Simulated scan of single mutants.
Amino acid sequence: MIESALIEIKRGVSEIIDEERVVTLLKNYFEKGQTYYVKAGFDPTAPDLHLGHTVLLQKMAMFQKYGAIVQFIIGDFTGMIGDPTGKNETRKKLDKEQVLANAKSYEEQVFKVLDRSKTEILFNSSWIEALGASGMLELTTTFNVARMLEREDFDKRYKSGAPISISEFLYPLLQGYDSVAKKSDIEMGGTDQKFNLLMGRHLQRAYNIGKEQAVIMMPLLEGLDGVNKMSKSLGNYIGVTDEPNEMFGKMLSISDDLMWRYYELLSALSIDKIDALKQKVKDGIIHPKRVKENLAHEIVARYHSEEAAVQAKEEFDKVHSKNQLPSDMETYECHAPIWIAQALVDCGLEPSTSQARRDIKQNALSVNQVKVNDVQMQLEQGEYILQVGKRKFVKLKAT
């Protein structure tokens, strides 16, 4: 039983530090019914979770099957500092109102994945603010500056002369202190979080709490571009609150190679079944598009419903396979005449007129289902169907 649980837990994992402790926790659960605590922290720097976040959440949900109580820590305090991981400049501070609003949305979204009855939603301000000035000073004595500068991103910035604020040095200490305050048994995070995750082990020793957490690191899920990690700021994400049609369409847009990465990290299918699918694709028995559609169906059904997944596929086929217009499009109004690039921005199809110009030149724009590459086009009075790329449609009434 322990061996099969461990195989399932290790699927897709990049690294485990202190696997022996993980085995002991599982053994105590199966033999004695003892629960244990698995912690992960999320800084609410954006209002919505995306599929990149769910790689971690799904692994935590798996632990819940094997006796874990998940400590879902919302970094409402640390979020106002900003995690310096991977940053080449000091991160912009978020105000408390923004952090709390984002935190609320996280709290509503995590139970799309986690078992509510086995999850503690915690805000780290509740114990960090209780530290006070003396407690904070004591915390800073547990680690020295030379070791802090061993961290790769700090080292690069220091050598290049880029500024590093003292608050950024505090961030890994505060994240590590979460493990002290909550006496976590396992902490999980992305591979880019290794320094911060190990800090939790270090501080649990320094504060002599009687345990030392294991660390499990998950790979970072690549975004739709297949290059950069999934990120809202890069626009290469699939949000867990995306509408079913949008979610399905985004899933179908990933490359055939990236599809297998998504299967491994996001699908509930076993590795054996995924390997069997790979072989069928390789042998030409099944088309990659069909396999991708099955994954898109699974993801939409998970975050919406089975019915929504079926309807999303029907809509996708209608628009892309049969070259028909979507059955549901947002309608906008404007005063004519209007420059096409400005119209695209006003309708939310483009973030800026400069980006609109680039997309028009690259033949990504259709007006009334006819390709248009005239960046100076003016829309006179009338009704138009504007389309950018394969998935973005609006109806515009120019009066």
Rank of each mutant, 00 (worst) to 15 (best):
A301W: 09
H304Q: 08
S134W: 05
E152I: 02
G176K: 00
K87C: 02
G348D: 05
N228W: 02
R151F: 02
A61C: 04
P172C: 07
I128Y: 04
T78H: 05
N208S: 15
V215Y: 00
A130H: 12
N88F: 09
R147T: 10
S117K: 14
R21Q: 11
V70C: 06
L51H: 00
K87V: 03
M247A: 07
W260T: 06
Q279D: 14
G284C: 09
L49I: 01
G284Y: 10
I69T: 15
T353K: 15
K39F: 04
H202T: 12
K93S: 12
D155F: 09
I74N: 04
E293C: 10
G86A: 03
E15L: 03
K280G: 07
M188T: 09
K194Q: 11
E3S: 15
A336V: 08
G284R: 07
E3R: 15
K32N: 15
M199G: 06
M329E: 06
A301V: 12
N294R: 12
M259L: 15
L122H: 05
K397S: 07
L26Y: 00
M377S: 08
A206Y: 07
I271E: 13
S366M: 13
G249D: 08
I238S: 04
K278S: 01
F393G: 10
C347N: 02
L258C: 02
K194E: 11
G176I: 01
Y384Q: 04
D374F: 09
